[in-house]
Design a binder for these strands. Structure first.
Lengths: 147, 147
DNA sequence: CCGAATCGTAATAATCGAAGTTACATGAAA
DNA sequence: TTTCATGTAACTTCGATTATTACGATTCGG
């Protein structure tokens, strides 16, 4: 199964946008993410529908963050992307007649539900502002190393 | 991403085998799992290589459990299947030059690592014997409901 | 020994969702 | 009105699991 990397993508894009004044075009974001402007629009469009960013057409247009970086969490972004499946492992049949399979499903579902709850809890505690701050630390450390 | 359901499958198969005396053929397992005998052989072959089951060819042949149900954990089975990827969500690029992307990856990797650790910990605490017991409870409750 | 039963395995196709691409319409600004 | 940029539909490509076909290798029974 090919992994869904949209969460990673939008975080990358949002942080770049946060580092810049004024709108950033899909083309610019696409270059920095090594992808295609249409893919950027498709994914960013979901964030726009959720009010997290705005887009402007025409010359001088592009994407800008509307939300407060302190308020936007990874969990919120995950939800905005439509809550894609988190796990690449699952039950063979979600509604089996077989009692054996029902027992197996119940045990696996429990374990996965717990892991998912932990992950979403962590996601809800990480904000864009924190990621931006982490980037600033790395950036400072990098310049230190360069000097 | 299509989910890997082999863990679910082998659990289902192993519990059916545990309920029976003597070998069970790939054909029988395939029927009960709504799949193909070749798929059964392919997956069970991994368990055989790990010594958890044995296979016998020819008339009267089939699959039999060799391991102690009390000792075999879900984690062990997951490992036997080659430790397939647990998550359907991942980083766009695992080794980015971009410091922004590195920061994003670090945060996501941390969260996923923690969730994975929890899941594997739970897997290591669930044995085949416990699943078999859970099935017996469901079976008894079902017969109760029928009577 | 022969033949049916059964596993072993390679090769190939079907499937499913994310990602990439092409094409063109829409709207804003110079 | 030309240019820039998004909006979006349609289609292709890609990656991974699962399904299917085909055939070879063993084992048991008569």
């Amino acid at each position: 199964m090919k992994k869904d990397s949209r969460l990673s993508s939008v975080l990358h894009a949002l942080l770049h946008m946060a580092e810049r004044e004024g709108p950033v075009t899909s083309e610019e974001l696409a270059v920095c993410m090594h992808t295609n402007p249409v893919v950027v629009r498709r994914t960013m469009g979901l964030l726009r529908d959720a009010g997290l960013v705005v887009s402007a057409r025409g010359s001088g247009g592009g994407w800008q963050i509307m939300a407060d970086l302190e308020q936007v969490t990874l969990r919120q972004l995950h939800e905005t992307l439509g809550e894609p499946a988190i796990f690449a492992i699952g039950n063979r049949n979600e509604t089996p007649q077989c009692l054996v399979e029902q027992s197996v499903n119940a045990a696996l579902d429990d374990a996965f539900a717990e892991a998912e709850a932990l992950l979403l809890e962590r996601f809800s505690r990480i904000t864009l502002a924190e990621l931006a701050a982490e980037f600033q630390r790395r950036h400072a450390a990098y310049r230190q190393g360069q000097a």
